[in-house]
Nucleic acid binder design. Structure first.
Length: 422
DNA sequence: TCTGGGGTCCTAGGACCC
DNA sequence: TCTGGGGTCCTAGGACCC
């Protein structure tokens, strides 16, 4: 049986989210910034047309943005995450064979949904997502995931496709591949693109026609899979059950530089809390924690960075235990006299909480008590909003918190921030 | 000219075993 | 002493993705 993958990709997702709640932004140049308002991570088509690129540093292009009347937003992940879920829910109405690949992309499989007239069906999917969520999407369909990505590239580039393109057995795949620069292939990043170009391989068609041996030697089996997928042989399967994370990181750059141990402790306690909460939300336990800090590497001041780690006697998801460890690691690596710009926490050696290895030193009683406590805390925070309940060491002022000067409201997830109809 | 935060997979090389 | 062959585990680093 031949495979068929459809990639549904939200157009300029973060910008589209902002536009859902502020339609006046439609047709205007809009950008969304990364955490801490550091750089541009999403642009509307109008902003792209002005030459603004992903990664442009905000403070450097601020005057330019102002002169062009560009609307600027801090990122609002609560809003984007919620709209993402709504988009995925709509897609699930069409098929259970769906892989949510990222916040703004999903692969669909299920040949059967595409009945007789496939392009019509794809169009219907796009139309329903747009109608029910306000988010415009592009659909690319093909026999492999990599080719579905290719199709999507063309859809987004050329309005003549009206949001839908299928490149399949009957269409001339090669004519598309020939037009696709090597760096736009899924799985080919900056490094491999350089390597390929220096070997005269400039477009996807040329890569498709490169020998397996060469590709495997230079780009490992991952590269080989990409090439096979370009040839129409499906190597990357649909992962319809989300796998649980094998590592969890929580880190942020600070809104201002931090010098005192007390403030660093607050920050690290917060990041640990976030990380362990994510750990619990996927029903896992971790037995390894690492803490890192660093100064601002873009500044010409004294530099210091360090990372220390510790193993726990047994896998756990009990926040106070992790915070205690994290803070003691932090104390050992803290050096006075530096301006810290960033800190973070890693959790690793993650296992499912159903396969817990027990150590001798903790009673079952204590384990059960801790677990119950965490369950209550999670429930309260879910119900009353983040931060409703937490450890005091997480701090109250949080002066170190990131800059988000231009954030829109959490229209869909926070009672206090609902849209007001006048 | 890598901005920010969060991930995965693969490979080479070292340690250590018999 | 580094000579043979075979194997495993772990880690660091490099590549990629959004």
């Amino acid at each position: 049986m031949s495979h068929y993958f459809t990639l549904v990709d939200c157009n300029n997702f973060y910008v589209s989210c902002e536009r859902v709640f502020n339609p006046a932004l439609c047709g205007k140049p809009v950008v969304v910034l990364s955490n801490n308002d550091g750089c541009v991570i999403a642009r509307s088509n109008e902003a792209k047309a002005l030459g603004i690129r992903t990664g442009d540093v905000y403070f450097k292009i601020k005057p330019f943005l102002k002169s062009k009347g560009v609307y600027v937003y801090s990122s609002n992940y609560t809003l984007y995450g919620d709209l993402s879920q709504r988009v995925m829910d709509v897609l699930r109405q069409f098929t259970p064979d769906i892989e949510v690949y990222s916040i703004d992309e999903a692969f669909l499989k299920a040949e059967y949904i595409y009945g007789g007239n496939r392009p019509q069906c794809l169009k219907a999917i796009g139309a329903r997502v747009k109608q029910w969520t306000g988010i415009p999407v592009s659909l690319g369909a093909a026999p492999t995931k990599t080719l579905a990505k290719v199709a999507n590239e063309f859809v987004k580039k050329d309005p003549c496709y009206q949001g839908v393109l299928e490149i399949g057995p009957d269409s001339d795949i090669d004519s598309f591949l020939k037009e696709l620069p090597v760096e736009n292939i899924w799985g080919v990043g900056r490094r491999y693109a350089q390597l390929l170009r220096s070997n005269g391989i400039n477009n996807a068609l040329a890569l498709k026609n490169t020998s397996d041996d060469w590709v495997q030697k230079k780009m490992t089996v991952t590269g080989l899979k990409t090439v096979w997928e370009l040839r129409g042989r499906s190597c990357i399967a649909l992962e319809d059950v989300p796998s649980s994370k094998k590592s969890i990181v929580s880190s942020r750059a600070f809104g201002k530089e931090v010098t005192s141990l007390a403030e660093l402790k607050e920050a690290v306690a917060n990041y640990t809390d976030t990380a362990v909460r994510r750990l619990r939300s996927q029903r896992s336990l971790a037995s390894f924690i690492a803490v890192f800090v660093s100064t601002n590497r873009y500044k010409d001041s004294a530099q210091y960075s360090n990372c220390l780690s510790a193993s726990l006697p047994e896998p756990s998801a009990y926040t106070p235990e992790f915070i205690k460890r994290a803070l003691s690691l932090l104390e050992s690596m803290y050096r006075r006299g530096y301006s810290y710009k960033k800190a973070g926490v890693y959790l690793m050696d993650i296992v499912s909480d159903s396969q817990q290895q027990r150590s001798f030193f903790k009673s079952d009683n204590e384990r059960i008590k801790n677990k119950a406590l965490m369950r209550v805390v999670d429930r309260l925070n879910r119900h009353w909003g983040d931060g409703a309940v937490g450890l005091a060491c997480r701090g109250v002022d949080r002066k170190w918190r990131m800059r988000q000067a231009m954030k829109s409201q959490r229209f869909t997830t926070c009672w206090d921030e609902l849209m007001v109809v006048k």
